[in-house]
Amino acid sequence: MEYRQLRLRYTLSGLEGIVASTSMTVQYRQDMPPAGGFEAVKYKRNLPFRGPSGLVILGGVTAVCAYGFYRLGKGNLEKRELEREKTWSRIHLVPLLLAEGDRDAYRREQAAIAREKEIMKDVKGWEAGKSVYNNPKYRPADSIVVL
């Protein structure tokens, strides 16, 4: 209640002020644009730089992928050659290792035959080391005697 009354009084007093000023000759100044005119209205969007464009990123990814696949292809070819190198290094060693193994196998075979001869010396017509198959093809012994 008090507030409304206060407002009313203030408006009335303001009205009185305006009425009083019109009756006098007052020096007034026309409000003009500043010297040099107003600056241009900033209507364009002003966003900070958000990094390279999508096209650049896409191109970059494509380039990286292309290089990667190129290296992969090169690597696959190289891997094949490395495998060939490894295989041939083993092939070159086969005769050497086989010869050594053969000598050992022959020694054991001879020893086994000698043992058999000694054990079966009382059996007439026993041929030590004779194959149970009627086949001249060589077969390694099926079983061995661990001394």
């Binding site: 010869a99 053969d102 022959y106 060589y138």
Partner: peptide
Amino acid sequence: ENRDPEHCLKEGRRVT
């Protein structure tokens, strides 16, 4: 020719 160890002892010695 032959897989018998006895068959290639001579050649094997040469290899070694």
